[in-house]
């Protein structure tokens, strides 16, 4: 129904630029999320003691807590 409008939008350079910028931004953010989470899971699987290391000798908070909240 809106074929001609769709076509003109699709061919407009400004639309192309906006879309490609937005897409790249969304994918970068998703990739960061995925990377952080995979890293977290791998760390749990292979190096749980790293997350269990204390922030400082006199604190009970371990590195895993800020890692997980971030």
């Amino acid at each position: 129904m809106n074929d001609s409008i769709y076509l003109s939008i699709q061919n407009s350079p400004r639309f192309k630029e906006l879309v490609s910028k937005r897409e790249r931004f969304a994918w970068i953010l998703s990739a960061i999320m995925l990377g952080l989470y995979s890293g977290f899971i791998l760390l749990i699987a292979y190096g749980p003691h790293l997350l269990g290391t204390k922030l400082s000798p006199d604190s009970s908070i371990t590195w895993g807590i800020p890692w997980a909240l971030a």
Binding site: S38, I41, I44, A45, Y46, P48, H49, L51, G52, I61
Partner: peptide, 18 residues
Amino acid sequence: IMSPGGLVKDPISAFSLG
């Protein structure tokens, strides 16, 4: 209790659930 323990048994299951 302050570090990861027995919940995640093998990396593949953990990753799969993740």
